[in-house]
Amino acid sequence: MRALVIQHDHVTDIGPVGARLVERGYRLSVVTVVPEHRHHAPDVAFDFPAVDGWDLIVSLGAPWSVYDEPAVGSWIGGELALLRKAHRLGVPVFGVCFGAQALTTALGGSVEASPHPEIGWVEIDTDDPALIGPGPWFQWHYDRCHLPPGAAGVARTSVCTQAFRLGRSLGVQFHPEMTTTTVRRYLELGGTEECVRLGVDPEALLARTRELGSMARANARHLVDAFLDRVAGAAG
Score class of each variant (00 low, 15 high):
G109Y: 06
L103I: 09
C97M: 10
I76M: 11
G135Y: 06
V93R: 13
T181L: 09
V96S: 11
L187R: 15
I119Y: 06
T161L: 12
F94M: 15
Q101W: 05
G190E: 06
A86R: 13
P136V: 12
G73A: 03
E79V: 10
S114P: 03
A102T: 08
S114Q: 10
T105R: 15
P117Q: 08
A106R: 11
S169L: 07
L80N: 03
R165I: 15
V72S: 06
L83V: 07
V154Y: 00
G153M: 06
E193D: 15
A151Y: 10
L107F: 11
A71K: 10
L166F: 04
G120S: 08
F138V: 07
V183N: 03
L83E: 11
G77C: 07
L83D: 05
L107Q: 09
S169W: 03
Q139K: 13
E177Q: 14
P129I: 01
W75Y: 09
P134N: 06
S169F: 11
V111D: 08
C160K: 12
G167W: 10
E194W: 13
L82R: 10
A106H: 09
G135S: 04
G77Q: 03
D125P: 00
V183Y: 03
C145A: 14
A106W: 08
L89N: 11
P117T: 04
F174M: 05
Q162F: 03
G133S: 11
G90N: 13
Q173L: 07
F98V: 02
T180R: 10
G95I: 14
F98T: 07
I132V: 14
I119E: 03
Q101G: 05
Y186T: 11
L189I: 10
H141S: 08
V96I: 15
R84C: 02
F164G: 07
L170F: 03
H87V: 03
L147D: 02
T104H: 02
L170V: 10
P176L: 10
G190I: 03
T192H: 13
P136M: 04
P117F: 00
E118A: 08
W121D: 05
T161Y: 06
W137K: 12
H141D: 09
T182A: 05
W140I: 13
A152Y: 00
I124K: 04
S169K: 11
P134R: 13
C160V: 04
L82C: 08
E112G: 09
H116I: 01
Q101K: 11
Q173S: 07
S114C: 13
G77F: 00
P115A: 03
G171S: 07
G171E: 05
L107G: 10
A102G: 08
H175I: 09
F138N: 14
T105K: 11
T179H: 09
